[in-house]
Design a protein around this nucleic acid. Structure first.
Lengths: 207, 207
DNA sequence: GTCTATAGCCAGATAGAC
DNA sequence: GTCTATCTGGCTATAGAC
């Protein structure tokens, strides 16, 4: 992180960093496909092409490894959100965010939410970096929600917190998987359908 | 199942049936609280107060046990749905069904959906009774959805299948847990909030 | 059918050479 | 830091007495 000398990182350090990146990436992939409990450290190591013991030189435990993977995902989400054009409306940016997450899930690259008793959740909550990333994402989305409500585009009877919770839940909406299993729709159509139902509701409008 | 003699079931058989019920109930509880992978057969046995080997006399494997527990839940859902008053409107019955499932989840008694690669899902799909119960629930709800659409109460642009998928997903909506963790609302208020957002949408009505 | 005891296996984590 | 080989513990499932 300190950058006083012009070239601080040697080749070796770069290689190490790259390897660590590969490990985290593989862990994220497996986490999304199999879940924390089912995923094994052996699989992650095999996916990267190194021995399990080498992996344990980088991460002290399976939980820490998974937490690093989740942090990577949070950072990707942050990057996507911050990359939203400033001239877009807040509602458009919110919908773009949900679309991004839904596409991830349909591709099978979105890990399931860690359940209440999962050791993964404890590891996440113990990681300051994860908590900070979560908080920053929450603040960013919260600002857009408030702005959209002020524009009269979102239901004003819902608190910003409630909208935030619901949007986060929709990002992992299992309805996507159900519809995809039916096989009638393209992925893009599936996303638009579920997104539309989320914002417009299931009931008929103008009663 | 055959009932030719007046009293076919002896006391012993009744006791066995009761014990098996207790096992399934305990399994369902633990399945909801901990998930299939984290739950151990020892815990189920301890919860019932019997030895693990005795449990294996009733169920040949952990998967079969969990499948029996899920079947119990499906039957409870079926009973609730069939108990809906016939003079209620289809939309009211649909909302009542979602409310029932949401209350279950807030109480911590709703198991998470088995993920794609879970051995539990395979066990469920291999159980004719589970598939049949699922199909019957789907048909019942599907009928109500079609009726509600004919009444103009549900968005006609959504296919009945899509509505069904979305309602099933809402029955396990993680937004409930997020809002409950915030601790601002009572359980009943949380349910009405999420239910309202599901049917009315997040966007402001009458733009 | 219920128990105690144990087999068999698998996955997380470590030792120690290089 | 990377490897091979191993330890350790816990979990599913079973054997065998009663």
């Amino acid at each position: 992180m300190s950058s006083a000398p012009a070239v601080k990182h040697s080749f070796k350090e770069q290689m190490l960093q790259a390897r660590e990146d590969a490990i985290v990436q593989a862990a994220l992939r497996l986490l999304a496909h199999k879940g924390f409990e089912t995923m094994t450290v052996d699989e992650v190591a095999a996916d990267v092409g190194i021995a399990k013991a080498s992996l344990y030189k980088h991460f002290p435990s399976k939980e820490e490894l998974a937490a690093a993977a989740m942090l990577r995902l949070l950072r990707q989400a942050q990057a996507f959100l911050q990359g939203q054009p400033a001239d877009h409306g807040p509602l458009d940016k919110l919908q773009a965010a949900v679309r991004w997450a839904m596409a991830l899930q349909l591709a099978g690259d979105m890990p399931a939410l860690p359940s209440r008793n999962s050791s993964l959740r404890a590891a996440l909550m113990a990681h300051p970096a994860c908590l900070e990333a979560l908080a920053q994402i929450g603040e960013l989305l919260g600002g857009w929600i408030a702005a959209a409500q002020q524009q009269g585009r979102l239901n004003p009877r819902l608190s910003a917190t409630a909208v935030l919770c619901i949007l986060c839940a929709r990002a992992c909406d299992p309805a996507l998987e159900f519809l995809q299993a039916g096989g009638q729709l393209s992925d893009a159509d599936t996303i638009e359908l579920v997104l539309g139902a989320c914002f417009e509701g299931l009931s008929a409008r103008q009663p």
